[in-house]
């Protein structure tokens, strides 16, 4: 089937197999490989992207379901001149990433959290990130990164 999906501000039109998952559309059809696959049960959140501005796990969305919608991945966060999004910058400043595999999904989930709750507490950040797994950081610095990006004191 043919799908038309706006990805990172650019319209994409592609012929795909019906069962194509959105994450594979991004990775394999478009070559946007930042979004990762970390499980097969919608548990880990490594594939988190924004669909019409809200975070979804793109391993559990068909490309067909995104037909006619807007998708944002971490590749689409950086500005035209290469300036980092505040969440990207905060992840680096706070050492909120180590191996980097969960990071694109974690950053997109964090963008979504702050859109819904611009001034969260550390505990609210933890609860909002429950669906995104990280094996390296112990989450402490990820929470700090979201706090920094929210413009609040990191230690809350």
């Amino acid at each position: 089937m043919k799908v038309t999906i706006e990805v990172n501000g650019r319209s994409t039109v592609e012929e795909v197999e019906d069962r194509t998952l959105l994450v594979h559309y991004l990775r394999d059809t478009l070559g946007l490989t930042a979004t990762n696959v970390g499980c097969d049960t919608t548990s880990c959140g490594a594939c988190t992207v924004l669909l019409d501005g809200e975070s979804v796990k793109s391993c559990t969305v068909l490309a067909a379901q995104a037909d006619g919608h807007r998708v944002t991945t971490v590749e689409g966060l950086t500005g035209e001149g290469g300036e980092l999004h505040p969440v990207q910058r905060a992840f680096s400043n706070q050492h909120g990433l180590q191996c980097g595999f969960c990071t694109p999904g974690m950053i997109m989930a964090s963008v979504s959290i702050l859109a819904e709750n611009p001034k969260p507490t550390r505990q609210e950040v933890r609860e909002a990130l429950e669906g995104n797994l990280c094996r390296c950081t112990g989450y402490h610095n990820i929470v700090s990164a979201v706090m920094e990006a929210s413009g609040q004191e990191v230690d809350g």
Partner: peptide
Amino acid sequence: DHKLITSGGSYVD
């Protein structure tokens, strides 16, 4: 970090 937070790492897949 820069690569990992902008275009993602180059993992084997």
